[in-house]
Amino acid sequence: MIPAYYHTIMTFTCINILLSLSIGVLAGYAGQVSLGHAAFMAIGAYASAMLTVTFKVSFWLAMPAAALVSAMVGLLLGVIALRLKEDFLAITTMGLNFIVIGVLLYAPYFGKALGIGDIPVPMLFGEEMGRGMYTALCLALVAGVVAAVWWLQRSWIGLAWRGIREAQDVAQVMGVNIAKFKIFAFVISTAIAGIAGSLYAHFLLFITPYDFGFPLSIQILTLAVLGGLGAIRGPVLGAILLTILPEYLRFIQDYRMLTYGLLLVLVMMYQPQGLFGHKSFLTEGLKRLFGGEEKIRGRAA
């Protein structure tokens, strides 16, 4: 029997993996970076919370709906993104984070600064889900999303995405409809972030706009950048590492943002493919250590 405290850590790890993957999809497969992903998590969390609290919808319907709402805003951002160069797109996503928080705080429908409380615990077979079951649900969703992303990456969509990232002009000549695929990447990515938001809301049972500020976006970005933008492996391992490690090194907690910031600087300067990315010193080292090429074959994007 695992104590509930570890359920908590595992649940947060799962949520972080989803967020990190969501950045990975956008960055890895469309060459875009979002600096405001906490906004989509907020949209997912609020959609799910309001559906279950105000409209008494079941969690099992609210979660997909939250993904859908988040993806719709993502679609809008994707359309805007077509008009912007990548660095200005990045600061637009950052701006979106501030705007979404501002709207949640000021518009009269979202509980303002009080947030939304009394969010129901999801029901399963007519009973409230236990902590263990909830953790299992999170793990299952992570597995599902990883599988879906993996399948997309293997299929022709992934090919198009990589084309866009590597050489936009060539991809265009080869008949890839860039606009369509970029927007698709935004939709998938923001839907994943929406699911993560929904899981967060029904775990904490109480959310406020302040939970989803810009610092969270930076943390999400760090998870993905540290692991390596692009592959499934990178974001997943980055998220696991950065969620579990600080729990053991409590003293790091006070230096948390300093650590995140320096990690971003150092990784971007010296190891832009991330710690677990293709040809990073860690993967190369591990490869040499275990001697086999096949252990990490094919995963690196």
Binding site: V33, L35, D87, A90, I91, P215, I218, L221, T222, V225, Y255, R256, M257, L258, Y260, G261, L262, L263, L264, V265, M268, M269
Partner: peptide, 13 residues
């Protein structure tokens, strides 16, 4: 851009 944001975050802290 990301390097700058990382540096700014670290400096603030």
């Amino acid at each position: 851009l990301i390097v700058g944001i990382g540096m700014f975050t670290a400096m603030g802290d």
